[in-house]
Computed example of a mutant assay.
Amino acid sequence: MLNICFNKKFYNSLKIAKKQGLIEDSEILLIQKEILVEYVEADKYRNIISKNTDITLWYSRSPKELYCLYFIVNKLINKNIEVVGLDKKNIENGYLKYSCSGEVNIEDIPYFMQNRKKLTLEEKNIYSQKYIEILKQKGDLLVEVDGELKLVEIDYYDNEILKFLNYDRWSYIYEAIGEFISLYEIGISDEFILNRLISLEKNNIVEIKFNNNEIYNSKIRKKQIDFTISKELSQNDLKS
């Protein structure tokens, strides 16, 4: 049996779970989107995969992990594949939802194993086709739209992120990021949103009072509009 996951933190959790006897003694392989081709085509990983007929794939519904899931199923479609979804855990008063598998606690791994599912040939073909369709698209960012993965431009969420900022009030960056993530549950990281805010600052759309000790404690607001210039431009337009 070979366990494959797509998040480094969860990979470490699986290794600990194996030592603790929470999962069976089997090989564990990490495959991440950033190094997808290298990981799968490198000889030592090809050898690990080829000698295992039974594969278990652990994944969350983050766009990166879904992409990896489709990719692996496409490459290993002739293997016996089980999947373990790490989307959410039922609790007494509702459920806990995870934006990536790295958020899952080690002690919860047996809980998710109870719901593992073997993919039928039809399901494997569907996942494989999803991967092929993504390859035909253009863009830099993976997003999930109406249950389907799409490739879009890197600034896809910028307008939505800006809704959590004001012109007349400074906010902490961690507050803006937290509000966005809590409302939009789309499986993108804090770091991604932070990088977009910094990009918006470089493009003169927002202002940031940088805290050199902790970037997330820096303050941010939308760039103030110079209404005097705007008014002069409008008047010149009227004259012309």
Rank of each mutant, 00 (worst) to 15 (best):
N3Q: 09
L151H: 02
C68Y: 04
I177P: 00
K33W: 05
N93K: 09
I23S: 00
S62E: 07
K231F: 12
E24T: 05
K117I: 05
M1I: 08
F112L: 04
I134T: 08
I55T: 00
E175W: 07
N211I: 11
L69S: 11
D237I: 14
K79W: 11
D237T: 13
I220G: 03
F180I: 04
L96A: 04
Y70H: 11
I132R: 12
V152H: 06
I229H: 02
K209F: 03
L69H: 09
I109G: 02
V84M: 07
D87I: 08
K89G: 01
S62K: 12
D158H: 13
W170E: 12
C5V: 05
Q114A: 05
R169T: 14
G94D: 01
E27S: 11
N159P: 06
S99V: 04
L22M: 02
K124I: 06
K118S: 13
I205T: 04
L121M: 06
L66E: 15
I31S: 03
P110S: 09
Y59F: 15
N7A: 03
V37G: 01
M113N: 13
I225H: 01
C68L: 12
V206L: 02
K79E: 01
N105A: 13
M1N: 09
S171C: 08
K33R: 10
Y156S: 10
D237H: 14
V145R: 06
I188Y: 11
Y167V: 12
Y172E: 09
K51C: 00
G187Q: 05
E214Y: 15
Y39E: 14
S182N: 15
K117Y: 11
E148M: 10
K15L: 14
K117W: 03
K163S: 08
G178R: 12
G102S: 09
N212W: 10
N217C: 12
F112N: 03
F10S: 00
Y184M: 09
E153M: 12
R61D: 10
K18S: 10
N217A: 13
I109A: 02
E107V: 10
I16D: 05
C5T: 13
K19I: 13
I109N: 00
K163W: 12
D87L: 07
D43I: 09
D43F: 10
K9L: 10
D140Q: 13
M113A: 10
C5M: 02
I188P: 07
I215F: 00
A17Q: 05
K75Y: 13
L197V: 06
